[in-house]
Design a protein around this nucleic acid. Structure first.
Lengths: 243, 243
DNA sequence: AAAAGAGTTTCTTTCGAAAATTCTCCATGC
DNA sequence: GCATGGAGAATTTTCGAAAGAAACTCTTTT
């Protein structure tokens, strides 16, 4: 067999190695496929031919299939009986289902985090908010939008939202939030790439409102701000992509 | 290759063929493994050796691995890097996490179903309640508890709870409810098998209360009854299994 | 010309074996 | 006596090929 367990750092198209380094090729396949689907490298509905994937990622059937099976249960990939896999299609209805579900999960998680959170939790929120804010400003100044820039911004954004609910003390809520984030990401893509006429909308303010209410332990307001935040995004996308 | 696509009805240890007939062996593996884990054929934490599974189900590595990967994302199976798969362990903390998450999901789904449900929805609830009630009475009269009996009762129970939320109009909520049901099922097993001193508890009444409030479109009460129902079950299990 | 059908091609799915890794257990040294 | 280490066994993971199904094409028939 070829060099396997050694060359696993995988230079990779994406310069982000996850926190825990994968030690099986199936894990590598899962991460890369997921990242590529979420970042729009494949378009919705596009068939994922195994032969193509095999070449693209330099892996063979088994690890790819395992990865695709996992992604299927996360709703990023769909499969018809003997007709292979394809990227999950998109639609307004699905988008709203994702968004509403995400609001349900994250509001509950936020409620619990506000109840349970300690000093470290608060510090984490402030830190990730700051990192996000910095990145937003830098980006708006430089006016460039290359891939890595956008990916970094997106990471900061996710980090901020994750830090808010990190103290909720529920495995399930956290991983559901992760999954739903990946799903919504696909819908936000055209917006992030600037294909949508910049909405008259102060996203930074929305983030600040969420943070302030959270740190003030004002659960109801925080949940409301969070829900509004996601719903506004939905409306912007609905009004342009699905117009 | 051996006779494949033909002999797929699979007599099977469990006499329940799902609604959509699986046409791949990976699908068969998924269903059977899932059913066996949920019904307690394997104990929590038990390693699932591929060689053993291969013999037991008469399948080879590939379909089994695909099934296990899917079950992993459903939290019924856990896996350590190169150390194979095992049945997800159980604990009080995990149990409550499942139950609380289930309450969150199903209460929201119930709320929406009550808002959207039509006549067919109501009819479905009444019908499945009746079927469940009948099965409960029959069982308490005959005093026998063989496997098929218990499985049937459990199906009726699931059907009832599913019918309540069937009109919620969200893919995600419905499939999440399914997954969480499978997880809770593992915890309820000792109770169903009669290993726990029968709690002084009128489950039939609880079901009726949920149904009545739902049909009366009293969303708040229905949600409360539903949440109480699941929480009581949790407490009974907590007080006996994890004592 | 449309429909049906046989043959061809493409793709998925499954298998069994080979490679890589972890586990087990016994000997060895301190 | 107890840690250390290192062969051998057990197990997982990966590969490439073979088998099966669906899609496609091109002919033939009504």
């Amino acid at each position: 067999m070829r060099a396997r367990r050694n060359g696993l750092q995988e230079p990779g198209l994406h310069a982000q190695d996850g926190p825990e380094t994968a030690s099986t090729l199936a894990e590598v396949a899962y991460r890369q496929l997921r990242a590529d689907i979420v970042s729009g490298a494949y378009s919705p509905g596009q068939p994922l031919r195994l032969e193509t994937l095999k070449q693209r990622y330099g892996l063979s059937f088994s690890p790819l299939r395992e990865a695709l099976n996992r992604l299927q249960t996360e709703r990023l990939v769909v499969t018809a009986a003997l007709r292979g896999f394809s990227v999950a299609p998109v639609s307004v209805e699905e988008m709203w289902d994702v968004i509403e579900t995400r609001i349900l999960i994250e509001c509950e998680a936020l409620k619990r985090a506000i109840r349970n959170g300690d000093d470290d939790w608060e510090a984490g929120i402030v830190a990730s908010f700051h990192a996000l804010d910095l990145q937003v400003r830098r980006r708006s100044v430089e006016k460039v939008s290359d891939g890595s820039d956008l990916a970094l911004l997106e990471n900061r954004h996710q980090e901020f939202h994750r830090s808010l609910i990190s103290a909720c003390r529920s495995h399930r809520l956290l991983s559901l939030a992760d999954q739903l984030h990946a799903e919504t990401q696909r819908y936000r893509l055209p917006m992030l790439a600037g294909k949508i006429p910049a909405a008259p909308r102060d996203v930074a303010l929305e983030h600040r409102q969420i943070m302030d209410a959270t740190l003030a332990r004002d659960s109801a307001s925080a949940q409301q701000f969070l829900a509004d935040h996601y719903q506004r995004t939905g409306k912007v996308i609905e009004g342009s992509v699905f117009a």
